Computed example of a mutant assay.
Amino acid sequence: MVKAYLEIILTIDGLDRAGVTAVYTLYKEPFLQTVKGALSNDLLTHIDDVQVLHGFDSVENAQEYLMSDLFNKDVVTSLRPYLKGLPNIKIYSVT
């Protein structure tokens, strides 16, 4: 059962949605298979931004993912060419 959501909103140019979607697709399964407590991963696309919504079994595991090599070295590095500004990152607890 999902107990926490990690929401990451990325501002991008509309034409870059395909690139961001490709990065999401590349790392979706490794995220679900290797990240402690990962339960779901969804990509919501809009003309101005994309939102990645990660489901976790705890807030602590969501916080740990933000410190992981998968997130910082792989995902962030791959997304960098598409970003317009800093991402908006929030962790929500499910009550």
Rank of each mutant, 00 (worst) to 15 (best):
A38Q: 07
N72T: 00
D69F: 08
D13K: 14
V52T: 04
T45H: 07
P30E: 14
L70K: 07
Y24N: 03
L66M: 10
R80A: 14
N41Y: 12
T95Q: 11
G85C: 12
D13I: 07
V52Q: 03
D42L: 03
I89C: 15
V75R: 09
V20S: 04
A38L: 10
I89A: 14
L10V: 01
H46G: 08
V23A: 10
L70P: 01
L53C: 05
P87V: 02
N88L: 14
D57H: 03
K28R: 14
G55Q: 00
D49P: 00
I89S: 05
D13Q: 15
F31V: 06
F31E: 10
D74W: 04
D13P: 02
K3V: 01
P81W: 05
L32D: 06
L15N: 13
G14K: 14
Y5N: 11
V76W: 04
G14H: 11
T21I: 00
K3R: 09
Y27K: 12
L44H: 11
V75E: 11
T34G: 07
T95S: 15
L83K: 10
K84V: 05
Y92Q: 03
L10A: 07
K73E: 15
L44K: 01
V52H: 04
Y27G: 08
G14I: 11
E60T: 00
V94R: 14
N61E: 11
S68I: 02
T25F: 02
L53F: 05
V23L: 05
L6G: 05
V52E: 06
